[in-house]
């Protein structure tokens, strides 16, 4: 898994690339932990180049979402491919995660 970080209108946009799978989960957890620093944090994960996610990746995203919400911050997910979106659906996590069709949609929603 590789990542790059930019700022778009005050939103921290993280482009993730590769597979969010079990052996990458600790690195993803550390990355998200460092980015969600307080109630002002607005982090959007661009999943457009993520080819695969497993239950460990889902667990990290749910943990980050939960910690962010508790802190008054926001973590969103943008542009998942069909397979990634289906894992959200199978685990019912699509009901609680903030998932947007595109990065501009996510930036607009998190900045509102």
């Amino acid at each position: 898994m590789q990542h790059s970080i930019s700022d778009q209108h005050g939103i921290t946009v993280v482009v993730l690339e590769g597979e969010l799978e079990v052996s990458e989960a600790p690195a993803l957890r550390d990355l998200l932990g460092s980015l969600v620093a307080g109630p002002q944090s607005r982090v959007l994960l661009d999943l457009g180049q993520v080819s695969f996610i497993d239950s460990s990746g889902i667990g990290v995203l749910i943990g980050a979402h939960r910690r962010a919400e508790e802190a008054g911050a926001r973590v969103g997910l943008a542009a998942p491919n069909a397979g990634v979106r289906r894992v959200f659906e199978l685990t019912r996590t699509d009901r609680v995660l903030r998932i947007y069709d595109s990065v501009p949609d996510g930036v607009a929603a998190l900045g509102a």
């Binding site: 497993d54 239950s55 460990s56 889902i58 667990g59 990290v60 749910i62 943990g63 939960r66 894992v87 199978l90 685990t91 019912r92 996590t93 009901r95 609680v96």
Partner: peptide
């Protein structure tokens, strides 16, 4: 039933569904 806010334990249910 899956609790969508838990951070683990999804694997077995996924296998069964897939």
């Amino acid at each position: 039933p899956l609790d969508p806010l838990r951070t683990g334990g999804y694997g077995l249910q996924l296998i069964d569904e897939l």
